[in-house]
Each structure stands twice: as C-alpha cells, then as structure tokens.
Design a protein around this nucleic acid. Sequence first.
RNA 1: GCCGCUGUGGUGAAAUCGGCAGACACACGGGACUUAAAAUCCCGAGGUAGCAAUACCGUACGGGUUCAAGUCCCGUCAGCGGCACCA
Length: 803
Amino acid sequence: MMKYDFAQVEKKWQDIWERDNTFAATDDYTKPKFYPLVEFPYPSGQGLHVGHPRSYTALDIVARKRRMQGYNVLYTMGWDAFGLPTENFAIKNHIHPEIVTKNNVANFKHQLKSLGLSFDWTREINTTDPDYYRWTQWIFLQLFKHGLAYKKEMSVNWCTSCKCVLANEEVVNGVCERCGGEVVHKVKNQWMLGITQYAQRLIDDLDSVDYIERVKTSQINWIGRSTGAEIDFATTAGDVLTVFSTRPDTLYGATYMVIAPEHPYVEKWAGQITNLEEVHAYQQEAARKSDFERAEMNKEKTGVRIAGVNGINPVTGGEIPIFISDYVLMTYGTGAIMAVPGHDERDWEFAKKFDLPIIEVVAGGNVAEAAFTDCDTGILVNSGILNGLSVEEAKQKMIQWLAENGKGREKVNYKLRDWVFSRQRYWGEPIPIIHCPHCGMVAVPEEQLPLRLPEVESYEPTDNGESPLAAIEDWVNTPCPVCGAPAKRETDTMPQWAGSSWYYLRYCDPHNNKELASKEALDYWAPVDWYNGGMEHTTLHLLYSRFWHKFLYDIGVVSTPEPYAKRTSHGMILGENGEKMSKSRGNVVNPDDIVKEYGADTLRLYEMFIGDFEKSATWNASAIKGCKRFLDRLWNLMEIAAEGEGYSAGLESSFHKTVKKVTEDIEAMKFNTAIAAMMTLLNEIYDAGSITTGEFKTLLLLANPFAPHLTEEVWEQMGFAGQISGQTWPGYDPAKCVDSTVEIVVQIAGKIKARLQVPADIAAPEAIALAKADPAVAELIAGKQIVKEIYVPGKLVNIVCKG
RNA sequence: GCCGCUGUGGUGAAAUCGGCAGACACACGGGACUUAAAAUCCCGAGGUAGCAAUACCGUACGGGUUCAAGUCCCGUCAGCGGCACCA
C-alpha cells in the first residue's frame, strides 16, 4: 500500500476543481438554493492567519454537504481591499496602493486555494475594483437623494496619528481602534449617514432573524433605546431649557440642572451670565480634553455654576441653579438634564461635591447615604400629585400631566448616533458629489459612475485635515453637472465599511454592468442563509450592512428587509501560550507551514476538531497529529476494503448512527463531535477488521466535506463512479439507529449496583423485575421495604428502599 | 458599575429532556516490531485506599430542590467578552 502523499494529491484535486469549475453556482433559479457567507478578508501584507480558515472551513463543510444534498450553493470569496494599512504601506514604500493590493490579493488567493475551499471563484469580487465601487457610489447617491447622506459641521473623533476622522464605533477606550493613537475632538464638516432613522427597525427586526443571542444583545445595547420624557424648564432668562429624562417621576426631586459644555445656550445667555469668564474657561478646558482623558478622569465630577440664570421646576415652581459640566454630553438627548441627586448616582455625586440639596422623592433607600435608584420597589413621596404611586405609575402620570400642561412630551432616545462617513484619505471610494457655488451640493450623474480615484504624487494625509485628493487641481475642478458653472469635487473618501456593507449582494450577480445585481438574481439568492463571522463586527459591519440593506429594501432594490437570515460566530484561535496571536508576541502560526507539513485536509480537520466552534481555542501543535493519524487510517482502509454493498461484521447500526450524528452536527456547527463520531466508527471498523466497499463509500462521503482531497483520491483509486463531490449525501434509517438490546444500569438509591442487557423496548415492570432478580441487587434489597421504583427507558432502573 | 458568557482529568474537550461524568483526541506510562530510532500496532490510566474484587471521593466554592444534579434554583468566588458619566 502506498503511503498517502498529501502534497501531490491535494495539488492534483485543486487543479481539477479549478479546471472544471466544480463548485460554481448555477443560474438555474428553479433549484433550491443555499447561500452561505463568510466575511471576506482585508488582504493585508501579512497574509493569511490560522484564524481565517476556521470560519472558511466551517461553512465550506456546510456548503459541500448542502451541494451533495442537491442545493444550488453560492459560496464565494472576495477582497475588502480599501483601507489604511495598504495606504500606509504605499506611503512608506512609494508603491501605488493598487499595486500593493494586487500583490496582497494574489498572495491571499494562493493561500486560500491551497486549503481546498469550495469557493466559486468565477464570482470573486474586489471592493477597489472600479466596476465594484461604481455601485458603492451609486448606493451613496441614493442615500444622498433620500436625505440619508448629509453634510454637517460637527465635533468628530480625530485620530492624531492616522490624521483622519473616526466613526464612534472606531474609538475604543478613547483611542483609535486601529492604531491606538490619541483621539481628540475636532469640529469639522463631515458626511454623515442617517442610521439613527433606522434605529427602531434595527432593533425590532432582530425578532425576525436567527442570530445567536449575544449578537442580538450587543446590537440592542449598542443602539441603546431609552424611553422617558422631554421636559421643558422655563428659565429666568425668559426662555425654555428642554431636558430629557427616563425618570420623569422624580421631577419633584430635581434640585438643579446641568448643560453640556458645548450647549448653545451659553452664548444665548451671555448677556445675563455674571461669571461668563469662568464659564468660558470651563468650556475651553472641556474642549481640550481628549476622549481618553475624559474617560480617565470620570471619577471626579467637575463643573461651574452659571450665575445669573436659573431654571424653574415646572411642578414646584421653585428656582433651581444651572451648572455646566462635562458629565453631560451634547450628543445625547438635548444636551441638558434635570438633576435628581436623590435618585441618580451621578447627580448624587455632583450634589455632594457642590453641596446641593438632596430631596427624597422615592421612598425605600437612604438618600443621605447614596442615591436610591431601584425602580421596582420604591414608592413616591414628597411629590404632590404622585405621592403613594409606584415608580412605573408615577412615570405614566407625570408624562400625562406634562402633555396636558404643555410642559413636555413622551420621548424615545437612542445611544446610536449617525454614522460619520467621510475620511480624509486616499485609498477609499471617492464620494461622488460636486460642490457648485450656485446649485450647492450636486450628485455626480449616475452615468458618469464610477468616479475613479485620480493618480496622485503623494498619498500622505495632510495636517490641515484635507484628503490628498484636494491637491489634485485638475480632478477637483469640474463643471457643475446642473448649471455648468465652475465647481469643485468633494475630496473626502468613504470609510472601509462602505464596500463591505453590500458585497453579499454583488456575489449574486458579480459581472452585471447595468445594475448592482439583477432583480432576478437578488430575488433568488437573497437573503444570505447563513453568515458566519467574528464578534468584533457585531456593532460595526453587521449593523452598517443591515442599515444599508433596509434602505435598499425601502427603495425597492432588494425584496427582503434583512440581509442575513442567520448569523453565527466563531471563537478566536489563540497562540500556544493562550494569548492572542500577534507578530509582537511571536506566537503567530502560519497556515502555509501547517499545509506544508501535514496537508490541507489535516489543517481543516484539526481546526474543526480543536473545540467548540463558538469558543476561543488555543493552538496545540502536537494535537494536530491525531487528525493526521485519522486521515492516514482512513486512507489505509483501502487495504481491507472488500467488494460488497451490504454491511459487514455487525456495523450496520453504527453506520446509521454515525450518518445521523454527522448530518445533524454539521448543521449545528458541532464539527468537533461530528469528527469524533467518524473517529469512533473508524475505530470500530478496525476492531471488526473488515469493511465492504458499500460501507467505505458511506464513510468517504461523510468525511468528504472535512477532508475533500483525500476522499476524492480514495474514491478514484477505489474505482468508484464519478467524483465524490458530485455524489449524493448519505441518508440513514432512524429505525436502524437504535440497538435491539441495550445495557441499563441498576441503581439502589442512585448508586450503581449492577448492569443488565435488556431488549430496547422492554416495558417498565419487566425491567424492574429483571433488576430485582439480579443476585447482587436481590441481596441488597432483601428484607427492605421498597419505597419507589423508577425505570428510565433504555437507561436505568433505580430502586429506593427504606430501612 | 451594568449586561452577557464561561468554570469538568496532566491538556483540548464530550455528555438532546435532570438519568452510567470524562466519549473522541493530545500528552504520558508499559509492551510488540526494529541493530536502533521514527512511524505503526496493542495495552493502561479521574483521585485516594487496596495484590485484588471493591469501597469512598470527584464537574470552581457554599447551600437547596429531586429517587437521581455537570445539567434546575439561591448565594459566593474566579476568568473572559461587550458597554461604560447615554440622564
């Protein structure tokens, strides 16, 4: 018997699959479809990481199995290739980002092909391809036309190191998610996308999709819906200061107010404020602080009283002071609050520091010691019309009172903010807008798309915060498409999240040059049936693409309100030391090395066997050998396989059970136990010492999604008809998955005392009688009173005695 | 601080509904083959005591429910992830 030469065999089959387009999806829209999706990678210079194949192999297994079950499967790959690392590499090495991208893609593609993934490579896409980003720009223009893309002067997160604006989602712990650089606030004119208009639908429609629970929870928390009321406070300046509160029931306990440092009323009240200098000084100090500093210093409350203007509590009529403090954010609610120190921890802290009165309006705690925030048990006191009510009742009554008296209204707020969409960088999709002195902002006519990136001398971002595109005069200057007057192009580009917000739609019809995809293709393939990806994309990519999809649904481009029917997530693969793999920690495992030493099938099998797919797993170089051994033993079955379609050596029910287990486990993402079941069966076959060719075929079919190269080769060498990837997935007979006799245990008061072989369908009285007849059991129960007898079918008999 | 998840041998982990804890592997020990090693094959193994049959203990910790708890309930501790002055 020839030893299994994985290198030669894997190359052979990869070439055949490529030559024959074996895994291409067909455009036969009458067949049942299955659309699995994995997140397309950013083709970095470092190449593939062993984390990538975990997700890709998992859905490859599902895809291969579903193809064998008769589905038309669309499983494909592409490149999310715009982005900063490529641009930075280009700057440093003076190579065009397009060339860098091309090289990286070639490398990634070569690596992926060596893993035997059954992608339909005829549908490969690249977000930096003008034929692709043409449609990214087209979607942007539709958003613009519907008022969902707009420009706004606002305070944005500015990474001092990348010299670029960041979305809120890209700021982590006050620093830049990508480079760890300091993030400061900068007031800039930015493109924004109105994702907040979709906030409620993004929450509600989670009920209609099959996402793992933690993804749903994270998205709901991120969107951060709060219900409460807006309340209008008259001020002694003669105007009205509106606040948002989730606790309108505590209005009688509002003893002061606070506005955010950026609140416009400071300027409005400038004439009345008697300590304006002090207030301005505080504003400047707050503006200077970075997010990181604000987060660091959040233990200690700071603030300045606005002297000369007071608020008037609408229910008590009493005058209360107004403060300016950075614990109130301009970006949430109205940028102003009513402070109820008795029942809000932050207000309590602030009141203590500034020696402000604390009034108890909800009984149940001790407001001298701490804020009492329990909404379930508290009863309203010192609150006029609300006295004696529960918190919930009081909220309703107060909202009603406010509405009736014109002092406020019910209100829902979201933490989610509109998406800061512009970047001042080169390597992104140009925003297709022209600024005309007469017509204002004008869309580039759709027939002129794609608006291509111009050639530039330098990709270096500028210190004044302008994109490198701003320096290309002959590109920037262009006539207005409406009036023909000299006008200027928008020079900001889109963030990396743009291209990835709709790529799954392009796979459906990737070569269409008339629309982003044909309606027929979209109606057939969408939504994605199963999307697997990392948890890190939950509040970024996943939320953004749901938003874009809903918009495309609203304008009739797609026919489903959600892009992904099902979302699952894989755990990270950690280095051998249990830490996250990184160059600096020196614990990175390169998949190429594993493929070279053990072969792709072994790598695939190992990554699926490593543990619970959803949990993070620690790489273990020696554990790979077990998977290699399994494949070698599978290969060596060729030596003992004997002609015959039936079952040999009493393995029939084992085969049926294994087919059932593997079939079900693949769909449940329990790849590790599916593999264990095949290992068990293989051990049984070797124990039996023989296998028929019929049995061998079944085992090869089960193993094929996991180890496609080896199983193809064995199939061929055994002379079985056709290629294994074109065969039908094996079925099983549920009746044959159960044994005719089973071993049950006999317990006395829960402790095992005997084991019996009984018919599987034995009735309870017979089973108990048999148990009592067992000599060991009989001796133990002799002369005792039996209190209880339990029979669990196929499992055990438990006898409970007294005395 | 809030929300979510997790805690099982030397290691990675299994264990539909509450029903034989540790499947399947790795590493380890012993043996076979070999001049030798690798590879391969066979055997062993949760802990304690015992030559053994066997007994007792055992799923982070403390309680509870149950004939029966890794699984359910209450409390505690530890770790991981997310959010974090969002009124």
